[in-house]
Design a protein around this nucleic acid. Structure first.
Lengths: 198, 198
DNA sequence: AAGCAAAACATACGCTGCGTATGTCAAATT
DNA sequence: AATTTGACATACGCAGCGTATGTTTTGCTT
């Protein structure tokens, strides 16, 4: 195999890894590219060659974290047999994931501010796509009212996001998480078809 | 009256006004303080004397816009006789207000990224407070289930925010706004007490 | 196998922009 | 009227991004 390609892939991975730490700890604006690359054992030369600019690096980092999140959510949702319970579990999972500094600081705060609307990202915000598919399934099953799935997925993810910001800023994360998850379930139940209400 | 105080208040107002424009058009990070102050007929000296630093200016701008929003929402909600309809109208109003560049770019994107959680702002995010009070009223009236009002207000505002980001990035804002408002109403109806469901 | 071309990364430079330290002038106080 | 206070301007230093240029290793060609 190509030695060039492997070392380059390795360097990219190390830069992204260092960026995840730096962006999560200092925030995008305060993260120094010199420190970042030095921590990865490289210089800014490697950075601008691989990612174009600082924004490009953030985009790569966001893409990676977003993929991780979607994968984890997939597993959690798959554990539920009922699709409706799966949706609720997924929402709760997103709220909890959003408590991690990497997710919150990078994906939820700096990401939209620097890169723009999440749905326009190359990853297309995998999380959004996943919940949307789940909603479509539930509608065909007659569990939900025939709502616009993109709209519902957007609002639900937005609700989860703000819940996370709230929890992260609160003094007692556990208690607040419980409240947030309950409120999330209540809001989501507004999508239920009349026949599906227990 | 003091001449010092009046001119100082005037200068503060002019700086905030110029900042609203610059931050909305270029974003917080890309807005130059030299250009900003020059546009207001002043220099950076006035800025650092009045607001401490760039963040301080953003905080002042956010505070002003947030107050404006709350006031406008108050009027809109007051036009509705039914409290429940008032809540829905207020939500729709927030979604529409969030389409304005000043609100979206400054309050919803850069604000949280630079200043942190909105509920910790000096204005305490007036919008959040307003919806929360409305929710409390509706619960005492028996219209809503006894949900935690802070949680519900947070998630609702989060949903409205993401709806706005979605609309702003879309090609046909009108059509998307209709979908978003409908989904918002559906989610909010999840808070309704069983007896209040028509 | 040897030389060549290309690419990955390092080094060096310039420019922008924030924050601060110092200066100045008007206004309020006495 | 003199003095002091304070609002704002001017001047400086420093950090950090992006780019232009240099260097070395790799992979291909003949």
């Amino acid at each position: 195999m190509n030695k060039r390609a492997t070392t380059m892939a390795d360097n990219r991975a190390r830069l992204i890894s260092a960026a995840r730490k730096a962006f999560a700890e200092k925030g995008y604006a305060a993260a120094s590219m010199d420190e970042l690359t030095a921590a990865a054992g490289l210089t800014r030369g490697a950075l601008y060659h691989n990612f174009g600019d600082k924004r490009g690096l953030l985009a790569a980092v966001v893409d990676q974290i977003d993929s991780d999140m979607a994968q984890r959510a997939q597993q959690i949702a798959a554990a539920e047999t009922d699709s409706w319970q799966g949706l609720l579990a997924e929402g709760a999972a997103y709220i909890r994931m959003a408590l991690e500094p990497e997710v919150q600081r990078i994906v939820l705060l700096d990401g939209p501010a620097v890169l723009g609307d999440p749905s326009q990202w190359p990853s297309q915000s995998s999380c959004l796509q996943a919940t949307r598919q789940k909603l479509e399934l539930l509608i065909t099953q007659g569990v939900l009212k025939p709502v616009d799935t993109e709209a519902a997925a957007r609002l639900l993810s937005g609700a989860a996001l703000n819940a996370a910001l709230w929890i992260a800023a609160s003094a007692s994360p556990e208690a607040v998480t419980a409240k947030a998850v309950e409120a999330f379930r209540m809001l989501a139940s507004g999508l239920l078809a009349p026949s599906a209400i227990k």
